[in-house]
Amino acid sequence: MSDIILQLNQIQKSFEGTEVLKGIDLEIERAEFITLLGSSGCGKTTTLRIIAGLETPDSGSVLLEGQDITSLAPNKRNVNTVFQNYALFPHMSVEENVGYGLKIRKVPKAEIARKVSEMLKLVQLEEYGKRRPDQLSGGQRQRIAIARAVVNEPKVLLLDEPLGALDLKLRRQMQLELKRLQKQLGITFIYITHDQEEAINMSDRIAVMNQGVLEQVGTPNEIYYRPRTSYVADFVGNANIIHDGSDTFAIRSENVLINGEIPCVHDAVVLEKSFAGGQLRILFRLSDGQTITASRYGIDADIQVGGSIRIGWKQEHAIKVLDDEK
C-alpha cells in the first residue's frame, strides 16, 4: 500500500579501516519528512552523501523509485542537497545561484528567469536576486540554498543540518518555514540533525542513528514514548536508564516521583539540585549506586542536597528497552 520512493539496502561504508555505516536499511515514503537523528560521527552525513551520490557505499544498494542508483553520478540523480554550510557560489548572484541547475540542464532562458523568480517569491527573497551571497544574512543564505535545490524539482531533497549555523530564534522560525515548504511542494525531505527537538518538531518519522547503526525508526511519538533502546531513550527523551537485574528501563525525569507521591519505594540521597527554565532538576543516588534525575516545575524548598528521600515511579512509566551498553 505504501509508496516507497527511496530504499537503502544493507548500506556499508568504511573510511580508512573505520566502519562508518554498518548495514543501513531504510525505506522512505513519497512526500514524507524523515529525519536522520544522531550525534556527530554517527554516520548520518555519510548516509546522506551516499544518497546524493557524493560517496559510493562499499556494499549495499540505493534504489530511487525502484531503480538502482548506487553507482550513478550525482549529476545524474533526481536528488538535490542543501549543504550544511549552504555552499552557495560566491561568484554568482542569488539569481545565478538559484538558476544554476536549470542552466546546466539547458532549460530555456525565459523559463529559467520565470522559475527563479517564482522560487525567490516562495522563499520571500524576490527583492534579493541581484545580490551576491556575501551580501545576505545567514537566514537569507539558508533560504537561497533551499531555493537553489528545490527549483530543480528533485524527487528527494536532502538537508544536511541546514539550520545548524543559525541562532535559536531564527532556527525555530525556519523549522516552521521548512515544514510549510515541504507540505506545499509535496517533496520528500530527508533531514539531518543532532537536535532532537528539531527532529520531533518537524518530522513525520525519525530514524535514530548511533555508531553506524539505525537504532529505531518511527514517528516522533513512537520514538519518544516507546524507545526501543537505551540510546534512543537517552538521546531523544533525556530519559534515565535504570538497570534492574538483567532488564533495562527508561524512565523520563518528569515521571520520577518524590516523597509522598505513591508509589515511592526506593531510598535515595539527593546529590544535586538545579533550577533552570522554570524547571527544577534533582539528581538522586539510589541505594544500589545508580543515579536518576527527576524534574519538577517550580521550586521545591523541602528537598535539601545530601538529604535522604524516597522516590519511585509508576510501572507504566518504566519502559523496557534494549541496553546499548551490552
Binding site: A73, T81, N85, F89, G101
Partner: peptide, 15 residues
Amino acid sequence: DFTLAEAARDLGASS
C-alpha cells in the same frame, strides 16, 4: 571550498 564543486555536481553539473 571544495564542497562548492560538490554542490555543482549535485545540481547536475558533470565533473
